[in-house]
């Protein structure tokens, strides 16, 4: 079995109006090579579930979003993603704004094939007011507690960036935090991985590394080799956040500047062209890991 494919193959399997989960967290381990491939495609009207960073900003700037399910969008070191901010202020997409933990519970409900998970999170807040579809439930047990029924967030596809994978989808995340990539993978009908390197099974996931495997290969649909594929976000231990690039990205908000950013960094013939455009592999490998 060989699940290797190109980024264009992945996007070719996606359809207008789909719900996509995008892994990572803010400026860490975002599958940016796959996101840029979506920008180059005619795909539209997407619902995106994300612990948001420049993935959301790029999709918003390119008009790809119909709806965003999120707890936040941030560039960490630069607190506000200006592309998200401008599109949100213009009312360019619908929002389902949730607590970060509710996003996790919604993904886990989908993963567990249950319609909802009960939680007190959200009570007393405008999350309930702004999402009138969210329902409350009363515990059927003696406590009788009123809780929020966080609905399952089912994904048509999850896009995740991992450290290494074999061609069957046995993968490892060697970064310090796996975030909620596993929950997204299990909530999704199809899971597409980008990875720093495709390597033989014995190297990717032997006894020494199996504990770094977020999920088993059976959930993986496709594997794309994309070295530095999380850039400009970090994929430690390989490389840190490219803060200078994020600054340029965040400043490119006028129509002219955005067009120029797209031309320089998005509308390119290949991922290799992108790596050259952002400074080359040597430079990227030298970006130190982030400190928070």
């Amino acid at each position: 079995m060989n699940k290797r494919m190109t980024a264009a193959d992945v996007v070719g399997q996606l359809r207008d109006g789909m719900t996509l989960g995008i892994g990572g967290w803010a400026t860490r381990r975002k599958p940016m090579a796959l996101v840029r491939e979506i920008l180059r495609s005619p795909l539209k009207d997407l619902t995106v579930v994300s612990y948001g960073g420049p993935d959301v900003g790029l999709l918003a700037a390119a008009g790809k979003l119909r709806r965003l399910v999120f707890g936040f969008v941030s560039l960490d070191v630069l607190p506000i993603d200006m592309h998200f901010r401008n599109a949100r202020q213009a009312g360019a997409f619908e929002v389902m704004e949730l607590d970060e933990g509710m996003v996790q519970l919604g993904l886990r409900a989908a993963a567990m094939r249950v319609p909802f998970l009960p939680t007190p999170v959200g009570l007393g807040t405008d999350i309930l007011v702004r999402n009138p579809d969210l329902k409350l439930v009363k515990s059927p047990y003696a406590d009788g507690t009123t809780l929020v029924a966080m609905p399952a967030l089912k994904l048509d596809a999850a896009l995740l960036h991992v450290s290494e994978s074999d061609e069957r989808g046995n993968c490892v995340i060697l970064s310090p935090d796996p975030f909620f990539d596993e929950a997204m993978a299990r909530a999704a009908d199809r899971v597409y991985l980008s990875c720093e390197q495709v390597v033989p099974t014995a190297k990717v996931c032997g006894h020494d590394r199996a504990r770094y495997q977020p999920f088993e290969r059976a959930v993986v649909t496709g594997v794309v080799e994309a070295p530095f594929g999380a850039h400009p976000t970090a994929a430690v231990p390989g490389y840190g956040i490219d803060v200078e690039h994020l600054k340029a990205y965040n400043a490119a908000t006028s129509p002219e500047d955005w067009a120029s950013y797209r031309q320089r960094y998005v509308d390119l013939a290949s991922h290799d062209d992108y790596l050259e455009a952002v400074g080359g592999r040597g430079y990227l490998a030298s970006i130190p890991p982030p400190v928070y």
């Binding site: 707890g71 936040f72 704004e97 999170v121």
Partner: peptide, 29 residues
């Protein structure tokens, strides 16, 4: 009650900031 999400009207905010982040779960926990 705290706000870190936005300032102004919900549909067309004057300033979109972060989102509710984890404040709801933190506050109840």
């Amino acid at each position: 009650q705290m706000n870190i999400s936005l300032v102004g009207d919900y549909a067309r905010p004057k300033a979109a900031i972060l989102g509710v982040r984890g404040l709801a779960g933190n506050s109840i926990s």
